[in-house]
Structures are given as structure tokens and as C-alpha cells.
Design a protein around this nucleic acid. Sequence first.
DNA 1: GTCTATAGCAGGATAGAC
DNA 2: GTCTATCCTGCTATAGAC
Lengths: 188, 188
Amino acid sequence: MDTRQRLLDATRELLWQRGYAATSPNAIMKAARAGQGSLYHHFAGKEDLAAEALRGSAEQLREEAAAILDGEGSPAERIERYLTRERDSLRGCRIGRMTADADVLTSDRLRQPVSETLAWLVDRLAGLIADAQAAGELRADLDPRATASCVASTVQGGYVLARAAGSTEPFDQAITGAVQLLRGAMVG
Amino acid sequence: MDTRQRLLDATRELLWQRGYAATSPNAIMKAARAGQGSLYHHFAGKEDLAAEALRGSAEQLREEAAAILDGEGSPAERIERYLTRERDSLRGCRIGRMTADADVLTSDRLRQPVSETLAWLVDRLAGLIADAQAAGELRADLDPRATASCVASTVQGGYVLARAAGSTEPFDQAITGAVQLLRGAMVG
DNA sequence: GTCTATAGCAGGATAGAC
DNA sequence: GTCTATCCTGCTATAGAC
């Protein structure tokens, strides 16, 4: 793997672990086993490197989610599978995490992959919920977009509870709660 | 107001806005209009000051939540009122926010108010849900703790979506979604 | 492409005067 | 209690050699 790619991979990992502000070029260089010269040869600076790394993380998140959301099964089954999919909940969401970083929110280049990815996710979930309603699986009185936002928020907020507790349990509970509520809204 | 209190207030505000790592003693001093001598006279250092400030924020959050959760109305009404209470969703949660700060998670003194407060919140919500079930308001097949975790996660995750979008709308949608799902689980 | 040297600046804290 | 001076470290980046 070439140096440029190692720098990107290391950056993605550190952004996930520590966020943008707390990730120093120095730490990236060490993790990537690359020198200062390499970093500033391949990238204009920290923000440039982080922006490209973040685009990669966003794309990966979309691919992993799409594999479930566009996968096998009925719409309602896919929503439930999205919720219950295995997650390393103590690590949190590599994209949602960036939301706590003021520097990310004030930089268009850094913010864009974050906002676009989460908007895409809610859109896709809302479409699936509408499909489930059209298929007669889910009660028609739910607002698809509101339900989708609640589903996505449960995941994002579950990470918060888990990390606060230092335990995966609150995350699992939150998912269970969402699944139970959704099942209660199933037709039949 | 004395200098010590001004330092605490400024710290609480900055911790909310920027988190722990990104909040410098210098910024606190400026916001509190206090000198370096004052800060290090009243507090052992940044962590000490932040720990006390965080305890204050945690207490305030508990008080505000308890005012609703222990307030007027039936259990189910109070849960719904907790969800729909007005919030500055773009600011996020002053406690949940700390969860993204690695330094907070690795310091017992900083982590404790965060973990305890969110644990208290979920506990209290779970009790209220059990009460609603006992009162025949809510279907008995919901697990109280799971439902409570989902409710708390919806709020915490709603902040994430709102901040990513730079708009309060995703938060409001998530809350609406949770309310609709809960209403669907009402008896009768 | 990668290296080392160097720079300017801010973070977090201590010391000692007042 | 508060002030100023000072310290060391690490961040982010540039310069120029190889």
C-alpha cells in the first residue's frame, strides 16, 4: 500500500477515535509510518487530508448501510435488520461523531460528507418506511420521514448512552426499544 | 458574582460549546474576565475546574428533566412532554456532548457526572414507562428499560442529526417519530 | 517523494511579587 | 486573591537538501 493511502487510512482511524481537532498531523504520521515530507507532499495540510479521509469514511458507511437497506427481505425486515445489525457501539459512528467537533461544523469541506451522509441515510430509511406502508406491513398513519429520523437518532443516541456508560448495554437496549415500538406499529 | 463562580459559569458554557479538549484555560479566563492567578488559585487546574463545572451542568440537567418527569399529568403525558419540550437542538446536550471527548472518557472525575446523569435519566424514564403500563396507558409488552433507552437515544441522536444538517428540523422530526410510535403503543 | 531543520504560536502550568 | 513573567511542550506548517 502506498504512503498516500496509509496516510488516509491512519487519518480515518484517528478521526473516528479522537475527532478532528484532537488529531494531530504528528499522530497521523506516526500511525501511517510516514514522514512529515510525505504528508505535506500528498496533501495541502491537515484539513485537506481530513476532508479526503472523511469522504472515504462516508462512502464506506453508505455502502455498508446500503448493503442492508437495499438487500434481501421485505421493507420492514430490512429496517429491523438495519437496527439490529452488529455494531461496535463503544466506538460510535465515524460520521455522526464529527458532529461534536466545532472545527468540522465550521468547515464546509469537512462538514459536507457528514451532513450529506446522514441526510442520505434518513432519506433512504424514509423511503423504506413508505415502502413498508405501501406493502401493508406498517401502519399508514406514521410519517415516514419522522419515523426514519427516529430510527437514525436511536442509533446515534445509542452510541452516546453506551459511551457514557462504558458499556454496550444501553445501546442494545435502545435498539431493542426501537424494534419493539416498530413491531407494535406493524399491521396485523 | 465572585470570580470563582464566573470561572465556573464560563467553563460550563465553553464545555457545552466546544467540549473539554478544545476549551483552553486561556479562553475560560477571557470569558470569565479573570486572570491566570485567579484560575490557579481557585482550582488545581483545567481538569479540576472542568470537573466541578460539569457537576453543575449535570445537576441542572437533572433538575430540568425532573421538573417534567416528576411534574403534572399522567405518566404517559409526562414522557411525551419530556420528548416535546423545547430544546435548542443545534447546541446539543451539554452532558451527552462530552461523550465525544476522549479525554473526558478517560478521566474518572470528568466521566462520572456524564455517566451518572444519563443513567439517572434512563432509569427515571423507565420507571415512568412502567408506571404508564401499570396505569393501563401503555401496552404491557414493551420492556420499560428498552423503551426508555430508545426515548433518551432519540433525543441524543436527534441532536447529532440536527447539528450535521445545520438545521433544527431533523431533531423535530425524530421527536415526532418517537411520539407517533409511542402513541401507537398506547392502550385503547 | 521523502528527509531534516526550523519557525511561530498556543496550551497548560508554575513562581514569586504585590 | 490577583498579577506578571517565565517555562516546556506540542501543534501546524514551511524551507531546502537529497
